[in-house]
Design a protein around this nucleic acid. Sequence first.
RNA 1: GGCCCGGUAGCUCAGAGGAUAGAGCAGCUGCCUUCUAAGCAGUUGGUCGUGGGUUCGAUUCCCGCCCGGGCUACCA
Length: 598
Amino acid sequence: MAFQFISDLEAWLAKEYPAAVLPAGWGIVPERCPEGMTGELVVNVFRIAKPFGCPPPVLAARVAEFLKSHPDLLHVEQIKAFVNVTLRPEAVYRDTVAKAGAILERGTLPGPEQRRILIEYSAPNTNKPQHLGHVRNNTLGMALASLLKRVGHAVTEINLVNDRGIHICKSMLAYQRSGSGETPESSGIKGDHLVGKYYVEFAKALSAELAALKAARPELAERSDEDLFLETELGRAAQKMLQDWEAGDPAVRALWQTMNNWVFAGFAQTYERFGIHFDHTYLESQTYMLGKDLIADGLARGVFERRDDGAVFADLGKLGRKVVLRSDGTSVYMTQDIGTTTLKYQDWRPEEQIWVVGDEQNLHFQMLFAILQKLGYEWADRLHHLSYGMVNLPTGKMKSREGTVVDADDLFDEMCELAYQSCKERAGEETDEAELRCRAEEIGLGALKFMLLKYNPKTTIMFDPQASIKFEGDTGPYVQYAVARIQSMLAKAAERGVDPAAPVDWSLLERPEEKSLAILADYYPATLQEAAAKLDCSVLVTYLLDLAKSFNRFYRECPVLTADDPALRRARLELALRIRDILSDGLRTLTIRIPAAM
RNA sequence: GGCCCGGUAGCUCAGAGGAUAGAGCAGCUGCCUUCUAAGCAGUUGGUCGUGGGUUCGAUUCCCGCCCGGGCUACCA
């Protein structure tokens, strides 16, 4: 915030109360005055009173007294410990939007607060295409990376692809048995979907075999499917394939490489369409053996202990005990994660690492961080798990096996097709097809990202296709539309006799819709920084909706190009342009693109 | 059982020790020969799960309880 009367108030308080011990980073943050109260900003003295050693209403009275004599303020009203103020128009704009670029620049953190941050997200398996759950992960990851960059951090985006393991072997086995040489080219099916088709095929065949097994041996009826996996022929065959893979069997390796390449090509398309770019992709097949030496080292140093059966574990106190090496000496997931985390540190030397991973792994990450701290890494206290909730459907959870997943590519298509229909209806005949498709892509995918970012990451999202796919109300297109309206005004400025390069007389903007818009705009830098500090893009989303709403109210109430006074036209256009810059910057920060027109 | 997250309007969600708890959707009423109606304005709708406690003040903090979800493997 950069309001002059606030700085003056702080200076005055410092002078009047020299004994007050103010906390570090102290500063008065004015709040926007609630609807229905007279005033534009409010100084909440409840919040600041403590160090001054007098009752809030008493301090508020003194604050009000000081502010009443301040030249920037038209009206000051004290109610209990709230001091509501109304500003002179010239003060509003001078302190907010009038200084070109100032608001956008203030979004960047001061140098010493900028850090090198590594963020890992997406982390797909290569046995099936991505679904809505992955889309939430991808969206949260890419937008968070972008937000952190926006406030000045040096961010490295990493993907760690889980390209080996029993799940891949399931797809491979089904393909080997019934694929008859089908390829993405021969079938016309996108690579990841083709591989997914065989994964589903395996799952079906396995459950048929399990059902037959249970029918033949009723004593097994109570056992879980996982439990009985190796009792089935298919299970044993998949297991055998995994062992062959690990032994480096050339045929298995070749099939694995072929099918994985299909999936990589498919993922690349999906990522490209969504606008995702990783600085580096690690493959689990190349990192899964890491970590064992660190365990051995930790064991020697007494960080880990060996159990009677030979398994090595970490005693993590309240978190419990965690096995880090099986009794047969092989790794578990935790072993690999210890290894890859140190690898990532060595490769990039980040000051912070962030993992975007679902909340079912909360305990895993608590344990991982605790283990790394026990191992004594000085960077181990700057690791964050950005935990997010599931995406549920009205019918319940998404389950690959039951075919109830919302496929990522299908969802993209559906969003964009709906956007296209709407674009087509509202555009004139003269707009060409390619342009409409391009707009629809930006609107459709923008709506999807915005919808996923709107929620606090930790909440479980209910995705109702009927209700969630919409372009009205609290949506991305609502914000994009505000930008499009401003662009359209700018395009017409010349024909209405407004020169966007002419000087601006801000004092003409006296209407409440104008002033509150400028005041709200000034909260942008703080909002960016708050969102970045909380690793929560929904803070920014909510703000952009507010700002767009405030703009739309202004747009309705205050004619811009059709105002009588040319100087007023000029000033209002300038205000609109400053708002456009913030909305655009905000959308870009969320990785949402801005259509040229809507 | 233990640990973690959630319970706010019919629905989906914000908010947060302070003023009269907000928004979108859905419903109802208006507003397009006037800068883009993917918009604006109005209106209906709430004992903020529940019982205690702390406080000048609690929906917000603390404790108990109820409901929903997650985790609690030598799976990833």
